[in-house]
Design a binder for these strands. Structure first.
Length: 586
RNA sequence: GGAGGCGUGGUGUAGUGGCCUAACAUGCAGCCCUGUCAAGGCUGAGAUCGCGGGUUCGAAUCCCGUCGCUUCCGCCA
């Protein structure tokens, strides 16, 4: 029987006779003495095989190779003075082996398990069970467990109850494409996998549970990104008898209490700053601002509206704006480097990037031909430009300016090393509009989702000026990542029906799709609201990773496949017939 | 749907028209080695350069196509 964990042995264990079971992490032979770094899920300890102590155990160690599984018996001893290894948690001790047995041999792994180097991601996923043995991945998965558990414990202490909701649900229009599951018992009918447990958690509030949470698996059949997988995990929460303020306070308290419990990163600002949606777009060019650094976007529209520089003047006369950003130390950039910056702006929609280089002998810019030096100096002053800086401007419609300069700002932050990996910059983004105009389909659509309550005084705007109505909605962002979002929900049938109508939904359609919810609202539904946190993204930030794949045990590739199991795969005609489904060529 | 990056011994990289009979590190195999910890020393094996076509006297290198991984745009209430 295994009597100790490798990574937990300390000098207080000296003298103990232990049985260890684990993997050969590394092996160093000295002809006589053999050292083995021995690993289990807890960590690594050094084993010493001395042929004078046990020739048979020494023989086992001599034959063993990396990743062999061994069972060893030996005595924990202090390392001889001067041979301690401070890089190892167990570095003060070693285990002198008296008996050893091979539990299993191992082929040479396809990549290093005892090193942290880059390996082709396909290969890692093909052999994910080996990838997960590697220290970094192993620790990420353990961190994920500890974090999830800490969050659940915290919620439990606050009176939250975890309740499962179904995975086979009804199709919900609006929002992400859903995975469909054919029904054998109902020919031609399909279940959908949930994008989120939204309706069920509201129904749990109707059911009177008051404080619900769930570690909920969610599914979206959309294209993948570094922070988007087709199946992902949300920490989903909902509360009755709350308004915006209580939800923010509670979630903020949960994060402030939990982060120090599971990782050593510091939180930049406590309490978390609250940024209006409008300010986020105006100042950061993003609805998920990275507030670890400044370099805010600065509006100069008023200074150039009358200028002879047509690009600026006409952008403004067409209802647009001109904004700039300061790039410290970039005045000396080469033409090519400046072009690179321009490409970042154009890739995100801008038509171009106009620059002003603040050189020792003056301002170098195409703009100087169109504006006198007083006007130019005023612009430099507004952007707080200093000698050596490069100022970059985009002129266009507000959304385009925000996207272009927002992307540029992140690139600059990256290049200048302003994104401190050890800082978590949480912030709330509040007061987002309830609705946005869908130009393609010609109707208003919910910016968050159709169950979000409008701010009370804006309710009259629903019919008169829908775009101006603000939502009781909030997003939490961290280091430029959208961590989660939620809202106070509509809990009265009349208001919900009004919102459906503004969204262009007929009463019949609303009843067909959401009749059960509307009906539920008639049976004493309490005011309620909640939030869903992207657990994968949260743990990614805690772990300092830049992809959620690094904190998911078995993720999909970017083309949504699993190289380990081969999923997805074609199924036989018999199976399809049983499900009343026919595959068609596309 | 679109744009970019990558694909060379097991792994990570170098090589970008002839100097390549493909280099380096590491891993692997064998031998030596009793205090190492990315141990060290010596010897050796290991790659038709993702795949298919083309250009060329000659292609890892250029062109076209294709597959895979990845980043981003669209998409993701």
């Amino acid at each position: 029987m295994k009597t100790a964990m490798c990574g937990e042995l300390r000098s207080t264990d000296i003298g103990r006779e232990v049985v260890l079971m684990g993997w050969v992490h590394r092996r160093r032979t000295h002809g006589g003495l053999i050292f083995v770094d021995f690993r289990d899920t807890s960590g690594i300890v050094q084993l010493v095989f001395n042929p004078e102590i046990s020739p048979s155990a020494h023989q086992v160690a001599d034959d063993a190779r990396v990743e062999y599984v061994l069972a060893v018996t030996g005595k924990v001893e202090a390392r001889p003075a001067g041979t301690e290894n401070p890089q190892l948690a167990t570095g003060d001790v070693e285990v002198l082996i008296e008996d050893a047995k091979v539990l299993n041999t191992a082929k040479t792994p396809p990549f290093y398990i005892n090193e942290d180097g880059e390996v082709d991601e396909f290969l890692r996923l093909r052999y994910r069970y080996l990838d997960l043995r590697r220290e970094r991945m192993h620790n990420n998965i353990l961190l994920r467990y500890r974090t999830t558990k800490a969050l659940c414990n915290w919620l439990d202490r606050q009176g939250f109850v975890e309740i499962d909701t179904p995975v086979l649900v009804n199709e919900t229009p609006g929002g992400a494409r859903e995975f469909l599951v054919p029904s054998r018992l109902h020919p031609g009918e399909f279940f959908a996998l949930p994008q989120s447990p939204q309706q069920f958690k509201q129904l749990l509030m109707v059911a009177g549970f008051e404080r619900y949470y769930q570690v909920a698996r969610c599914f979206r059949d959309e294209d993948l990104r570094a922070d988007r997988q087709p199946e992902f995990t949300q920490l989903d929460m909902e509360m009755s008898f709350v308004d915006v303020e209580q939800v923010l306070q509670l979630v903020e308290g949960m994060l402030i209490d939990t982060v120090p419990e599971v990782c050593g990163k510091r939180m930049l600002t406590i309490p978390f700053p609250r940024i209006t949606f409008e300010d986020a777009i105006n100042l950061y060019g993003s609805d998920k601002p990275d507030i670890r650094f400044g370099l805010l976007l600065t509006d100069i529209s008023d200074m150039v509206a009358e200028s002879k520089f047509q690009v600026f003047a006409s952008a403004i006369s067409e209802g647009g704006q001109v904004k700039g950003i300061r790039i410290p130390g970039a005045a000396s950039y080469t033409r090519r480097e400046i072009d690179e910056l321009g490409q970042i702006a154009t890739r995100n929609g801008a038509k171009g990037l106009l620059t002003m280089a603040l050189l020792p002998d003056g301002v170098k810019s195409p703009l100087t031909k169109f504006m006198d030096s007083t006007a130019v100096d005023a612009i430099v002053a507004r952007l707080d430009g200093k000698e050596g800086d490069l100022l970059a401007f985009v002129a266009d419609q507000p959304g385009v300016v925000a996207d272009g300069l927002g992307a540029l700002r992140l690139e600059i932050g990256q290049r200048l090393g302003l994104m401190d990996q050890d800082t978590l910059a949480f912030a709330w983004v509040i007061d987002a509009p309830l609705l946005e105009w869908n130009a393609e389909e010609g109707h208003w659509q919910a910016k968050h989702h159709q169950f979000t309550a409008p701010v009370e005084e804006d309710i009259p705007l629903l019919e008169t000026s829908p775009g101006a109505a603000r939502a009781k909605q909030y997003d939490i962002v961290c280091n430029g990542v959208e961590l989660g979002g939620g809202s106070i929900r509509i809990h009265r049938r009349e208001l919900q029906e009004r919102v459906f109508r503004v969204l262009g939904m007929s009463d019949e359609e609303a009843r067909r799709l959401f009749g059960h919810l509307l009906e539920a609202f008639e049976y004493g539904t309490p005011p309620h609201g909640g939030i869903a946190l992207g657990l994968d993204r949260f743990i990614m930030l805690l772990a300092g990773e830049d992809s959620i794949r690094s904190v998911i045990a078995f993720p999909k590739t970017q083309s949504a496949t699993c190289p380990l199991t081969g999923a997805p795969s074609p199924v036989g005609d018999n199976r399809l017939r049983e499900l009343h489904v026919k595959a068609i060529e596309s």
